[in-house]
């Protein structure tokens, strides 16, 4: 279903599946002027994995995410998505910390922004409404963003990211600005759509609890290098306050705080 929107993409693989892509980084370096932010990152993320990247401010985690979503180019090394080193930008979507909705467009039109690469005449409105339903905002399609709550705005942003059926969804601290209860709700929503769609999810966060609650695997970035690579092999859905989760969280926090 909904495959018509990919008509411009010459890759047949995209037509048959909107599941996840495998990501492979080899010696990826990023420097801004004289300052090197990422030092030769080697990383393999299997298709459909849920990866969380944690680290202190300035450790390079947001930079890594921007490279993975094609917003910036690496200074050195290669990034391959499904074995291809270029032409993969339409497969990834980035969700920002802020909703970044166009205030002058109603909810449905904002979600349609996610279909910008699709050819005209594609059934944009229907796809948008479907995505709005997936994030639980059916009936709010014609609202202005200004009257939505912070959590609802972020749901619209999620719908905008999902509507093109990306194979990789990157999140840059998407829940950082939300209150605690809304955060838990959004975490559940993200987990649920990830399980439904099977995309590869990469979440940057500085909340280790959130990382443990959501991810299959946690990468700890320190000074531009992967300092820790932890598998989180816990059954889903995970309950808050689970002792096994707390143990993993403790290990990561110890490393982060240098204890």
């Amino acid at each position: 279903m909904n495959l018509s929107i990919f008509d411009t993409v010459p890759d047949t693989e995209l037509r048959v599946s909107s599941a996840g892509s495998a990501v492979s980084l080899r010696g990826v370096t990023k420097a801004f002027g004289a300052q090197t932010v990422l030092h030769g990152i080697d990383l393999d993320i299997p298709a459909g994995q849920f990866v969380a990247i944690v680290g202190r401010s300035g450790c390079g985690k947001s930079t890594l995410l921007r490279l993975l979503s094609g917003l910036d180019q690496p200074t050195g090394g290669t990034i391959e998505i499904d074995g291809r080193s270029s032409g993969w930008r339409d497969r990834t979507r980035l969700m920002f910390q802020e909703p970044r909705l166009l205030p002058w467009q109603r909810v449905a039109a904002n979600v349609e922004v996610g279909l910008s690469h699709a050819p005209r005449g594609a059934d944009r409105r229907r796809l948008a409404l479907e995505a709005i339903g997936q994030v639980g905002l059916s009936g709010r399609e014609q609202e202005w963003p200004a009257i939505l709550s912070g959590g609802q705005k972020q749901r619209v942003a999620l719908a905008r990211a999902l509507v093109s059926h990306p194979r990789i969804l990157a999140f840059d601290e998407p829940l950082g600005a939300l209150d605690a209860l809304t955060r838990i709700e959004m975490q559940a929503l993200i987990e649920q759509v990830w399980q439904d769609k099977g995309f590869t999810a990469i979440v940057v966060t500085h909340d280790v609890t959130e990382a443990v609650a959501l991810a299959d695997r946690i990468l700890l970035l320190d000074a531009g290098r992967v300092a820790m690579d932890v598998a989180v092999d816990l059954p889903r859905p995970r309950r808050h306050g689970d002792p096994a989760a707390a143990a993993i969280e403790g290990r990561i926090l110890d490393r982060l705080l240098g204890r």
Binding site: L71, R93, E98, L102, V113, G114, S116
Partner: peptide, 12 residues
């Protein structure tokens, strides 16, 4: 931020 979003989402 909106301009960056537009570019990231492939707007012409």
């Amino acid at each position: 931020q909106l301009l960056e979003m537009g570019r990231a989402y492939g707007m012409s």
